[in-house]
Amino acid sequence: MNIWGKLSNRGWRLKSWKSLLALFLVGVSLSSVMASCSNSNTSSSVAANKSDVELTLVSFAVTKAAHEAILPKFVQKWKQEKSQNVTFKTSYGGSGSQTRAVIDGLEADVVHLALASDTGKISQAGLIEPGWEKEFPNNSIVSKSVAVLVTRDGNPKGINNWNDLAQDGVGLITADPKTSGVARWNFLALWNYVIKTGGDEAKALDLVSKVYQNVPVLTKDAREATDVFLKQGQGDALINYENEIILAQQKGEKVNYVVPEVNISIDNPIAVVDQNVDKHKTREVAEAFVKYLYTDEAQQEFAKFGFRPVTESVAQNKEFSAKYPKVKNLGTVQDYGGWDKVQEKFFADGAIFDQIQAKTQR
């Protein structure tokens, strides 16, 4: 090939590379535009179509009946207002067990647990942003109750107050504080009784130790404790949520119970699981659902199923004010330094509850 042919080929190759480069740049530009259009279309499509959304609610066992009444109302309300279908996946169990499940990977969008320390553990695991208590009204307490003593028909053992549970020959059914938030409230109610009636911590430890000596078996949660007492006929007395016993009565169970005048306010928090709602892109509907739980409509449903209302407007309703008489001497977890201190003092590994258990023979 002559020199001109070589130069001609080089020129052609140079032009070809320039052409290819130009085509490449045009392709990149078009791809960017198409991607932008695609993203825009996708966003507008989602907004326009209002595709269905699924929320996972993880809650402690005794809220099941109330939530089953509340969830359809929210679904209907959201459909009317947003033209979007919401479905719920639900999980109910002991508060401690539910907490561990969420930390271990159960992708809850919303958690409604028995006590703030369980929610705090999920926050410490990085799933819920710090300051969650201030996200919703009433320090994010969405349901509450008190502890009651349930006895056999005619109350043959004469159990009317907390100290009666320490009598010889009394069999008490309660859940395990290691797995059940309700059980931690039960334990604190016993301790609170001694302190509120003028006793010191030594007397409180003595009473609580004697009471747990009378527990033949610790159930995993409040619902199982109720079944063991009412359905299996074990024990002379049961400590449980007031709402759980009211629900049992509504189901036709004949239940004898007293609400001790010295009691503990059992406060149950709600929280959005930030990491999961951001992953699922469900934050808007999750936050709307939690806010809905504070409405009079939702609080009335909680009250129908035995929970004391957290909103004053519902609490003052004649139906519910008669159903839930005020407790004369009502303690709170804040009286004992809050749940972090209570957990460390009573329920951490090797703490007071474990020490009592080590001395308890079953």
Score class of each variant (00 low, 15 high):
Thr87Ser: 15
Gly94Val: 08
Leu57Ala: 05
Gln76Leu: 12
Phe60Glu: 08
Val58Lys: 02
Phe136Ser: 06
Gln124Leu: 12
Arg100Cys: 02
Leu71Trp: 02
Ser117Tyr: 12
Lys89Ser: 13
Gln98Asp: 03
Glu107Phe: 01
Ser140Lys: 00
Ile141Trp: 01
Ser59Tyr: 09
Arg100Ala: 13
Lys64Ala: 13
Ile141Gly: 00
Gln80Ile: 10
Ala69Glu: 14
Ile70Pro: 05
Val110Gly: 00
Val58Thr: 11
Thr63Lys: 12
Ala65Met: 11
Ile141Gln: 01
Leu57Lys: 06
Lys89Val: 13
Phe74Trp: 03
Asp109Leu: 00
Ala116Thr: 14
Phe60Pro: 03
Ser83Ala: 13
Lys89Trp: 05
Gly105Phe: 08
Lys79Tyr: 14
Gly93Ala: 12
Ser123Met: 14
Ser91Lys: 14
Pro137Ser: 05
Gly93Ser: 07
Gln84Val: 11
Ala125Trp: 09
Gln98Ser: 12
Leu55Glu: 06
Ala125Asp: 11
Gly94Cys: 10
Gly120Asn: 14
Lys121Cys: 00
Ala61Gln: 09
Gly131Cys: 05
Trp132Leu: 02
Glu135Ile: 04
Val75Phe: 01
Ser95Lys: 04
Ser143Asn: 10
Thr56Trp: 09
Phe60Asp: 07
His112Val: 13
Leu57Met: 06
Asp118Leu: 10
Leu113Asn: 00
Lys64Gly: 12
Ser95Thr: 09
Ser59Ala: 15
Ser83Asp: 15
Glu135Pro: 00
Ala108Trp: 00
Leu127Met: 11
Glu68Cys: 04
Lys77Ile: 03
Thr87Arg: 15
Ile122Lys: 02
Ser91Glu: 13
Thr90Ile: 10
Trp78Cys: 08
Gln80Glu: 15
Lys134Arg: 12
Leu113Val: 05
Ile128Glu: 02
Asp118Pro: 00
His112Met: 10
Ser95Val: 04
Phe60Ala: 08
Leu115Asp: 13
Gly131Trp: 09
Thr63Pro: 01
Ile122Leu: 10
Ile70Ser: 08
Leu57Phe: 08
Lys121Gln: 14
Thr90Asp: 07
Ile70Val: 14
Ala125Glu: 09
Leu127Ser: 03
Gln76Gly: 14
Asn85Lys: 15
Asp118Tyr: 15
Ala69Met: 11
Leu106Phe: 02
Ala61Arg: 07
